[in-house]
């Protein structure tokens, strides 16, 4: 982890009272959703920041369709760069949303590598099949609302924000 990114790392009390976090405190889910009045909050956890980003991406997919409805037939490369981890997280989610929209795909697996403020990743998923996936809603963009990337009380990484649907 480069020093300029470490400088941006914040520490959070994950027990912020949301339904999702209370669940996590007891069963250590890799990702959750948290409530937002108009849209949906997504949150990923991980032993590393990369893993938290991967799990947050799964949380985002599951806003649209159950992860279990997907296989991983096609791969897509994603690259992004940002001045700090929080913006990098939003860029990562928005890059996935862009690929979902233009390739008409839904992704279930992600491999993320973060080096020097740059993220490189591979996302694996399927072309949208409306009958099979029954997509509930379209993702418009990842927002900076409730945007947090940092370590929780238990030392695990948390990456979260609200996505506009």
């Amino acid at each position: 982890m480069p020093s300029n990114l470490w400088g941006a790392i914040k520490h959070y009390d994950a027990d912020d009272g949301s339904v999702a976090v209370r669940n996590v405190a007891t069963n250590s889910k890799p990702w959750t959703h948290f409530p937002h009045q108009g849209d949906v909050g997504i949150r990923g956890y991980g032993a590393s920041v990369s893993e938290a980003f991967e799990n947050a991406a799964r949380a985002m997919t599951s806003v649209v369709t159950p992860i279990a409805s997907l296989s991983a037939n096609e791969a897509c490369r994603i690259r992004c760069q940002a001045p700090n981890l929080e913006i990098l997280f939003v860029d990562w989610l928005n890059a996935i949303i862009y690929e979902m929209a233009t390739r008409q795909m839904l992704f279930r697996d992600f491999h993320v590598d973060i080096q020097g403020g740059a993220l490189s990743a591979e996302a694996y998923g399927d072309r949208v099949d409306v009958r099979q996936h029954e997509p509930a809603v379209e993702l418009k963009g990842a927002t900076m609302t409730e945007l947090k990337v940092g370590r929780g009380k238990d030392g695990r990484w948390i990456a979260q924000c609200v996505v506009d649907v």
């Binding site: 913006i87 939003v90 860029d91 928005n94 949303i97 862009y98 929209a101 233009t102 418009k140 963009g141 990842a142 927002t143 900076m144 506009d164």
Partner: peptide, 15 residues
């Protein structure tokens, strides 16, 4: 999609 992408890009740039 055009509006969504414009919003995404300018929210970041303005922030």
């Amino acid at each position: 999609g055009l509006g969504h992408q414009v919003g995404t890009e300018y929210l970041r740039e303005m922030a």
